[in-house]
Write a protein that binds this DNA or RNA. Structure first.
Lengths: 189, 189
DNA sequence: ACCTGAACACCGTTCAAGT
DNA sequence: ACCTGAACACCGTTCAAGT
């Protein structure tokens, strides 16, 4: 919702930006992360080229739409860095990530794509999530709660895999949670 | 390669069928499981509508191309039903599935899609893989090697998720194997 | 019976023209 | 500066016409 702070926009441009976000959110929820871009532009009452001007790639649009959710996850993670049990802190955060990923269609795909971005075109999203996950994991490993040979990358891959695997399943939240439990049993020191 | 036994085909139709399989295999390897169908038809030296006639969906083409590989996996699984350690038998099979999935682009997607097919349009592939996995899992559970609360569905979802998650990664085979090891640690009784 | 290329529909991307 | 609709390219799907 709140635009990442860049240079100011003309009033009409800003309004279009916000309409596009709202329309995209609705479309993603309804049709999934591959909803037609023309559809989104039309719902927003805007030319399709305007969509493209604001969001050069579908990925950029996805991240903008779910920015708040992703930031909330990162914020939660920071709070959990002072949890009494480091291992439990990580577990709680991972459950939240999976829950979010299987609720918002597209979040899982968004995170997955962000993880792929190895170049300098690194998305904003990757840095934030990666940093949070690293802090939580290292703390849990130092405390001896989680195996030392697990990498952040593996961890996030796996969590995204769970979200993707349960995408659009009946009872996906429960399924996702069960799979996560299995994973966690394998992660403990 | 060997066509599933249906009614006989005219000589030219059979030749086209085989050319399409070969062209599709090459295209999938080169461009991934979403390789353009027109491309495949052109490589096969065949009209695009002919491709569609033989394979009504992309899924059908994928399964036909990887039929041999999938059958080999099922065959391996049957052999492992007499392995001395039931748990080890399952583990060996799962490793083979993941290895295959991260080698052949499209196999993971193919299996995943097959797993989704809940209707009567159930793909051939789903039945075969599902049966093999069930036999191996139940044997391992009866022997007390693997937790009793794990379902076949969960197991296959997870394995596919690993293959998908490591798709097109550098060192994907090693990555996939590491993730599988984590999973297996969580599965043991 | 089977094959073919052309036609159609759909969607993403770019661009010249408007304000 | 920013917006717009039209143009273009791409790909999947269908169909009338051929053998």
């Amino acid at each position: 919702m709140t635009r990442p702070t860049t240079r100011p926009l003309r009033a009409d441009a800003l309004r279009n930006y916000e309409r596009l976000i709202a329309a995209a959110r609705a479309a993603f929820t309804e049709l999934g992360a591959n909803a037609p871009l023309d559809d989104i532009a039309q719902r927003a009452g805007v030319g399709n080229a305007t969509l493209y001007r604001h969001f050069p790639t579908r990925q950029a649009l996805l991240e903008a739409v779910y920015r708040d959710h992703i930031e909330a996850l990162c914020h939660l993670g920071e709070g959990l860095l002072t949890a009494p049990s480091p291992g439990e802190g990580l577990v709680v955060w991972l459950r939240a990530v999976v829950a979010q990923g299987s609720t918002d269609r597209g979040v899982a795909a968004s995170l997955m794509a962000a993880m792929e971005a190895t170049q300098t075109d690194v998305s904003w999203c990757r840095g934030a999530v990666f940093a949070t996950a690293t802090a939580l994991l290292e703390r849990a490993q130092s405390a001896g709660d989680i195996r030392a040979d697990v990498t952040v990358r593996q961890l996030l891959k796996f969590v995204n895999a769970i979200a993707l695997a349960t995408e659009g399943e009946p009872g996906k939240c429960e399924q996702a949670d069960q799979l996560l439990s299995l994973l966690l049993d394998g992660l403990r020191a």
